[in-house]
Design a protein around this nucleic acid. Sequence first.
DNA 1: GAGTGGTCTAGACCACAGA
DNA 2: CTGTGGTCTAGACCACTCT
Lengths: 244, 244
Amino acid sequence: MRATGKSRHKQTPLYQQISEEIVARINKGVWLPGDALPSEMALAEELMVSQGTVRKALDELTHRNLVTRHQGKGTFVTAHTAQRELFHFFNLTRDDGRKQLPTTKRIIGIENRRGNSDECTRLKLKPATRVIFIERIRELGKRSAIFETIVLPAKMFRGLGMNDTLPNELYQLYEQQYGVTIHKAVERIGAISADRNHARHLNVQNGAPLLEIDRLAETLDGTPAEWRRSQLNTISHKYIGEII
Amino acid sequence: MRATGKSRHKQTPLYQQISEEIVARINKGVWLPGDALPSEMALAEELMVSQGTVRKALDELTHRNLVTRHQGKGTFVTAHTAQRELFHFFNLTRDDGRKQLPTTKRIIGIENRRGNSDECTRLKLKPATRVIFIERIRELGKRSAIFETIVLPAKMFRGLGMNDTLPNELYQLYEQQYGVTIHKAVERIGAISADRNHARHLNVQNGAPLLEIDRLAETLDGTPAEWRRSQLNTISHKYIGEII
DNA sequence: GAGTGGTCTAGACCACAGA
DNA sequence: CTGTGGTCTAGACCACTCT
């Protein structure tokens, strides 16, 4: 029950209260990713509003990619699938325009250690909090193209790295094994020169230009959950941004 | 008048027909950027649908950034303002997170000539069609940071370049002087090495890493209107991409 | 006050999925 | 067949802007 009776004079719109309530419940795990929500009618009855108001709330959540609706079936909490990972959280395409997920070629290392100052600041952790640190090389096609450094708050991912195999799509792992759903990410992109390490792993010359993508990913409630830096060779792939 | 009477059995939804009709009219120039549309009631009456259906159509156009609505005032065709240019079509921020529009420092040249093969292909023109070619240097803060190459179809911008002053916000010029409204852009981003030309104009060493943004901008009906390549120094500014 | 968009409701009918 | 979401309508009331 919500919407605090009918005391809605000059407050935030009812449908926003409803959508916030639904977000809160998803956050609390009342409905897990992939689960079906109650029907519009059921929600309307429980929350004591009209069906139209519930619909408007759900439409908003649909636009925010939080739920997915299917006529005749129901409303479902959006889950991380390979599809979603590819089309929503991966912005590299081949020069012919086709998209292609990279595959992990080699994991250079996984450590569980105290985070340094940068890491704790970016992840909004107290200084010297424990983090999980992963370095890996990813392939695009048959070319080693991406050198990736990932930093995670150890508390949110207890035990990660004990079994040394990592899947290709990390966000699915986060969601299914650790209950951490990545919902939003901000990327800051610049150009850097390849150092010896890059040169060795990516088969480029020392000083070659690389694209650096610095991505901070957050959960639904805004908690930073992953800091990822990718240095990549853009000879045959480009980063895509669309402005509409 | 539209919506072809009430012969709507298993067709595209009415509200989509309405929004397409409104888009078509904006395209034809019935309402120019900045103009007010008729009120919901007026549109509903003219198009013979209910106010709610017009509302749904207008909501869609609002999400597509095609119109802007203000309670108590009306519905307006979105126009290119400096604000819009900054927050919608400019993805660079300073490393402290603040946004700042670049200023034109120097125009290296403006030519009206036949397009080469690449240029005509990207702009979907017949081979050797005339284009306007602009090269300029832009400053971020006090640093010469961006080397920019712009190619335009000469037919759409007759006379541009005759008076040698160009404003900072080109998209406003396109809209106000030539009736060309940029509505969508696709950017492909990679890393390159500075050549002698870049080194001279951007005050970097030969071979320094630069970010290259290749942007193709389109009008409302999908016609390519501008091909722009920007090579920039990302020492103190980064490209921002947000994923939600 | 008159006119605009914003919210909320109630009800009818359609299209789709699954038992 | 039942239940789901999708479309469309009609009407009431609120909040904001301008005159």
